[in-house]
Simulated scan of single mutants.
Amino acid sequence: MNKASLKKLACIGMIAFAAVITGCGSEHKVAVVDYQKLEDQSPKIKAIQQEITDKDKEISNRLAEDSKKGLSDEEMQKKVQSAQQERMIFIQSKQKQIESMIQSQAGIIAKEKNIGIVMNKMSVPAGAVDITDEVLAKIDGGASKAASSQSK
C-alpha cells in the first residue's frame, strides 16, 4: 500500500471512530415523519400543491396562446425555456415552503417530547417514534386534539 492509501484509511477510521464515540451513550430518541401521509392528508399542503397545479395550467395556457400568435421557432423556443424556468422556480419555492412547514412543526414536537433526531419515515427501517399525526395536526391547527390522542 502506498502512503496516500494509508492516509485515506486512517482518515476514514478516525471519522468512523468519532461517529461511534459521539453516538455512544446518547439517550436521544429518533422520530420519523411520513411525508407521504402529510401530503395526502394535510389540507394546507394540498392547497400548496393545488397552487403548483394552477401555476402549471397558467403557464401551459400562456404557451398555447403564444404558439397561436405565429411566433418564429426561435421566439417560441425562448418563451418555452422562460416558462420552464418560471415553473421550476415556482415549484422549488413551494416545495421549500412545505418542507419548512413540516420541519418547524416537527421541531416543536421533537422539543416537547425530548426527541433528538427527526427523519423521513422512508429513511428509517424501524424502531423510531412516529410523530406524523402530531405534525399533521400542528400544520393544520388541531394541535391539542392530536396531542391528547398521542399521549400515553
Rank of each mutant, 00 (worst) to 15 (best):
V124C: 08
E58R: 07
K111S: 13
I59S: 07
M88C: 14
V124T: 11
K79D: 09
I102K: 00
Q92R: 00
K121R: 10
Q97W: 03
S100P: 01
S123Y: 14
I89N: 00
I98R: 00
A83Y: 00
S82I: 05
K57Q: 13
Q77R: 08
I59A: 07
M101W: 03
E74G: 08
R87Q: 13
K111Y: 08
A106I: 06
K55N: 01
I108D: 12
N114I: 05
K111A: 12
K79H: 11
I52K: 00
M101I: 04
V124S: 06
I109M: 04
M119F: 14
D54M: 10
G70N: 05
M76N: 08
S60A: 13
K68D: 15
Q77C: 11
A106M: 03
E58T: 10
E74N: 11
A126C: 14
Q97M: 07
F90R: 00
I115D: 06
D54R: 04
E58V: 07
M122I: 15
I98N: 01
S67Q: 14
S100T: 02
E75S: 15
Q81C: 12
E86G: 02
G116Y: 05
T53Q: 11
I91T: 05
S123K: 13
K68T: 15
S123T: 12
A126F: 15
G116W: 02
D56E: 13
Q105T: 11
S100Q: 01
G116C: 12
K94A: 01
A64K: 10
Q85R: 06
Q84V: 03
Q95T: 07
A106F: 04
N61Y: 08
S67K: 10
I102G: 01
I91A: 03
S72F: 10
I117Q: 10
A110L: 06
D56K: 05
K69Q: 12
I91D: 03
E75P: 14
E74T: 12
S60D: 14
D66K: 15
Q92P: 02
N120F: 11
K69M: 13
K113W: 07
A110F: 03
I117D: 09
M101C: 04
N120P: 13
A83S: 10
G107M: 03
M101A: 09
N120V: 15
M88D: 09
